[in-house]
Design a protein around this nucleic acid. Structure first.
Lengths: 341, 341
DNA sequence: TTGAAAGCGCTAACAC
DNA sequence: GTGTTAGCGCTTTCAA
């Protein structure tokens, strides 16, 4: 088993000092070294298979070239695209992502945050729903920049990249109203998630602007299929029941599907359903889900871009807010309401 | 913006030397230090909010406490559960995962591998389908252990954690035969993926054991929905056409759904379909997909366990092979074949 | 049981 | 344009 090749090995092979090797191999300082020497160094490095030790470099430069990425749960299908967006930009700049799941727990979020601080991450992309001021304060104290992704914050003054959820909700309501619906239920996620609050408020606001629209808001206790199913159950026994439901995300919408199925109701003939996110494979559900498409990959890209910029600037970050457009994708889960009984 | 708290700060606060702090805080060496001193040190560390610098420690101990995790694509829904399995075990042992996508490219795989070597990862979990001997050799040369997950290898002698794919394919065929099917198509993934080869061979072997079963094997050029759709198209125009198709994974099966739909054929009335993996939300497709469930999270857990062990042992790794049971999940995409025309 | 000091691999300030 | 040297924060050997 061969030893790791160090910078000193390259120096010896090239017949120069290790400092020169360092300069020659770093694009930012390469101009300081003689062209022929540089070539010699690069050749020696290549021949020996030298790969710089990023950790040792980081210790010296006070940059780990890593970024912490906090998501609630990687198995929630909206996050992998976001993470890949983040990774794509980070990679271009030599950074590596440390992806951590918080599972919606503030405790876990703090623990994970500390672990990442211990690894000297240069910044954070935070895509978790909780608005924990703790980590924002701690990060600020340490001068580690944070960018929020797929969620804003009312209490925290941080840069954020979000979808224009309000616009999406308006499109959803308008679509239902055009189809002739007059009784619309909004199945919200828990109020502890900032995204739920934003979307629910948008729903209330728009609903109030439409004449003759009766609405109700129900809060599920999680953004999951089972929670959606359980909370939809409460509504379905009633008479009259809503002819359409807008769900706070696609998982909840899927729960609505299941509850409808359990009650022998058809979608969209009996009840129309609209989701939020356009998660992967939403078009393959039964029926294909009408939903608001949010650009998760783009959010990741933009968030990473802002973060890299903030790391480079290393002053206090301006709290810029980027709002990306969303669009209603009409598929087969929405139709005109059934005739009055 | 407060400075980072270093070990020397704790030492000063506790009135001891930094070496003592190091010993007191490390569980493995804590017994070397006086109990009262240790308590004093722990108190000072806590009061100051000391978080050890894992990078600096790693430089000294020659352990980065990171592990590279190679997946083809995080947005393929079978990988997030695997990654979370890996993370769960790593976390228990103080390791952090560096997750990288290879996008099915050997070039990318090598590049990513080098990046991770530059970050001094202590080991690799490799869940990509390609069997690139390059990285196995390079890793061995450097004494960095590798564990394969969700895929074996014929050419590489490495520890691996796989699903019992053969068993799953047998169950799929037997299920179709029981339903009365006599013409079964196997829609395989590309032969460049080791998993495709394993499953296709299992299909051939079992098919040969069943009297009166006519089978055919078609190779798609990617493990994707669009590839599945395209290659299914080739088959559907024919007469007679198969009454059932087994797909190399769920994405291909979804492509089959789409092709059937485009030809005005119903599943399962006209054609039965079986997938492989039981990816998240397979039960929500139209129709709910009958598929072979592979335990991806468990694979991640076991692979990480083997890897942590191998890192600790730091000798040459024994190439243990763990084969986890799979099971056929019968849902609504399979039924008896249509009556003879 | 604790302190002193060296050194992990690298970069950057300084000297020549 | 290149060599020398100090030091990033930590662990660990050696001495006391």
């Amino acid at each position: 088993m061969a030893e790791r090749v160090r910078i000193s090995d390259v120096a010896r092979a090239a017949g120069v000092h290790s400092g020169t090797v360092s300069r020659a191999l770093n694009p930012a300082t390469a101009h300081l070294v003689n062209a022929t020497t540089a070539k010699k160094v690069r050749k020696a490095a290549k021949d020996l298979g030298y790969i710089p030790d990023v950790l040792a470099r980081g210790l010296r430069t006070n940059r780990s070239m890593t970024v912490g990425v906090l998501v609630p749960d990687l198995t929630n299908p909206i996050f992998p695209p976001l993470v890949r967006g983040v990774q794509a930009v980070l990679e271009q700049h030599g950074y590596t992502a440390l992806v951590a799941n918080t599972d919606g727990s503030a405790d876990t979020e703090r623990k994970v945050f500390e672990t990442l601080i211990g690894r000297r991450v240069d910044g954070f992309v935070v895509a978790t729903g909780l608005a924990d001021p703790f980590i924002a304060e701690e990060a600020a104290k340490r001068g580690v920049p944070i960018v929020l992704a797929n969620r804003g914050s009312t209490s925290l003054s941080l840069p954020e990249v979000v979808g224009n959820d309000g616009q999406g909700i308006v499109a959803a309501i308008d679509h239902l109203v055009e189809l002739g619906h007059t009784d619309v239920l909004y199945l919200s996620g828990p109020e502890s998630f900032i995204t739920s609050v934003v979307r629910t408020e948008a729903f209330s606001r728009r609903a109030a602007q439409v004449d003759g629209l009766r609405t109700e808001i129900v809060y599920a206790d999680a953004l999951s299929v089972t929670a959606g199913e359980a909370f939809m159950e409460q509504v379905l026994g009633r008479d009259p029941r809503p002819t359409a439901v807008v769900a706070g995300n696609d998982l909840l919408a899927l729960g609505v599907y299941r509850a409808l199925h359990a009650h022998g109701l058809r979608c969209p003939e009996d009840v129309s359903v609209i989701g939020f996110n356009d998660m992967p494979f939403a078009e393959d559900f039964a029926p294909p889900l009408t939903t608001v498409r949010a650009p998760h990959q783009a959010m990741g890209l933009e968030a990473a871009r802002l973060l890299v910029e903030a790391i480079g600037a290393d002053g206090p970050q301006p709290a810029v807010s980027l709002s990306l457009p969303v669009s209603l994708v009409v598929r087969e889960s929405t139709a005109p309401p059934p005739r009055k009984r």
